[in-house]
């Protein structure tokens, strides 16, 4: 028993810096997903037919292909190829971390776009109508009237997406990102104590989920529109 505790104690700093890797990974991926998911949702709701078609194909592709497969495709395929292009050499594209942020972010964009789309569609049609009646262009109406409301409504779905994506981020170890799972395996292979380390990994993921979900709940409360009782 003391052996186990010592193993955990000694591995703790190493494991916790892995938690930091997961945290940065997930924040990056959520932001990529947000920046891409919002225009995808707007395109799917308000776009012309070809735009809607493109968004649909995107969403199908990224929801349909497992993240593990995508990681291999991006790391060993697209990024390896891109980094062989001479004038892109400065960018150091052959990075497992970059591959993981991109794959998780692009996948999350597909899911997030559907969260935002649902939120946009749940707004009363009169909001857009009133904006147009005041002479607003569609772009102004979307950015000043529709999205501020839709994004508020998206926070609960977003917090769900965060907790799912966080656990998907463990897959990044498959291309060599030194996140919590990769470190668990590395330590376990030298200490031969996989069980306590797996428990520790579980606790770390749980804590990251808890912090993120609580933070988003606080955000939801902070931006709540006064007068609504829920």
């Amino acid at each position: 028993m003391p052996d186990i505790l010592t193993a955990i104690w000694e591995a703790l700093p190493f494991m916790l810096s892995g938690a930091w890797v997961n945290a940065v990974l997930i924040v990056g991926a959520m932001l990529v997903g947000l920046m891409l998911g919002v225009p995808l949702a707007v395109g799917q709701v308000y776009g012309c037919k070809p735009v809607r078609r493109v968004v649909q194909i995107y969403v199908w592709a990224f929801r349909g292909v497992p993240i593990l497969v995508q990681l291999y495709l991006f790391y060993f395929g697209i990024l390896a190829w891109a980094s062989s292009i001479p004038w892109l050499g400065w960018a150091h594209l052959e990075s497992p971390f970059l591959a993981a942020v991109l794959v998780l972010g692009l996948t999350s964009a597909a899911y997030q776009s559907q969260i935002f789309r649902g939120a946009i569609l749940s707004l009363p049609a009169g909001q857009f109508k009133a904006a147009r009646a005041l002479g607003m262009s569609d772009a102004t109406a979307i950015t000043t009237i529709i999205l501020p409301q839709a994004l508020r409504l998206s926070i609960p779905g977003w917090s769900n997406e965060y907790s799912i994506l966080l656990k998907d981020s463990a897959l990044a170890f498959s291309v060599g990102v030194m996140e919590v799972m990769a470190r668990t395996r590395a330590v376990a292979s030298t200490t031969h104590q996989p069980l306590p380390l797996s428990i520790l990994a579980g606790i770390i993921f749980f804590a990251l989920t808890w912090v993120g979900v609580k933070a988003l709940l606080a955000l939801e409360k902070k931006v709540r529109i006064p007068g609504y009782s829920h």
Binding site: P124, G126, Q127, P148, Q149, I225
Partner: peptide, 8 residues
């Protein structure tokens, strides 16, 4: 008829 004020 139903005002359509911007709720936010």
């Amino acid at each position: 008829q139903d005002f359509n004020l911007f709720d936010h």
